[in-house]
Write a protein that binds this DNA or RNA. Structure first.
Lengths: 110, 110
DNA sequence: AATCTTTATCGTAATATTGCGATATTAAAA
DNA sequence: TTTTAATATCGCAATATTACGATAAAGATT
């Protein structure tokens, strides 16, 4: 089928999955890291930085934006993309709570 | 094409993407949460817990295991799955560093 | 106004994912 | 040894993702 049954899961589960999925491609991981590495936000040169064509980069940026991981501002004929710190704080918090609960559990079998 | 160009990215970028991708489906998020909620590790009843068929759950478990997010032990004719705290600690650390750098940057445009 | 620059969108091909019925596998139980 | 129980694998259909060439859109530059 190939269609995810999102309606069966909680809003939070779907949100975490959406954000995690957006980070589930190395190009998008690299884009986020690049955005953090540059001082200014004029980000048209992501295309020069990554071994992917411009339409492909644009598509990846769209997905990151859709997941709420980056924000974009129109800046003349260029566009400025920046990472959204709150989204990543949320991811950190979530995975931290998983790790903490996991330690607490002291699994005997694994 | 549909083929991810993993060879162009760093090992760490590919690892983060692999783990994030595994958490990029609400069913797999729900599976992890369920594994943490049960005391004992005999986990055959994930099938009863989630609105998905047994082969589908088995496939999701396989992906979580492949990404290193869970570990599995044979336990008689059942199998015990447990979350791997180190993997989630790594995810927490990574996303935390992204969030921290993002705050540090003080983006002027977004 | 014509051109350049930058980003987005369209269309399409190749591949991956999701879901599940049917079936295999393996070990416990009867 | 037959049956039962639990999990994995196969095979397939439906849908999603990835990548990119071609082209559009929109503001800047000349």
């Amino acid at each position: 089928m190939g269609i995810t049954k999102t309606e069966h899961f909680s809003e939070q589960q779907n949100l975490i999955a959406l954000m995690a999925k957006a980070m589930g491609h190395p190009a998008r991981v690299a884009i986020i890291e690049y955005l953090l590495s540059v001082k200014t936000c004029i980000c048209g040169d992501i295309v020069n930085e990554l071994p992917l064509a411009q339409p492909t980069i644009s598509q990846h940026l769209k997905e990151l934006k859709n997941a709420g991981l980056i924000k974009g501002n129109i800046e003349g004929n260029a566009i400025c993309y920046c990472v959204d710190e709150q989204a990543f704080a949320k991811l950190q918090e979530y995975f931290g709570s998983i790790a903490a609960k996991s330690i607490q559990q002291k699994n005997s079998c694994c």
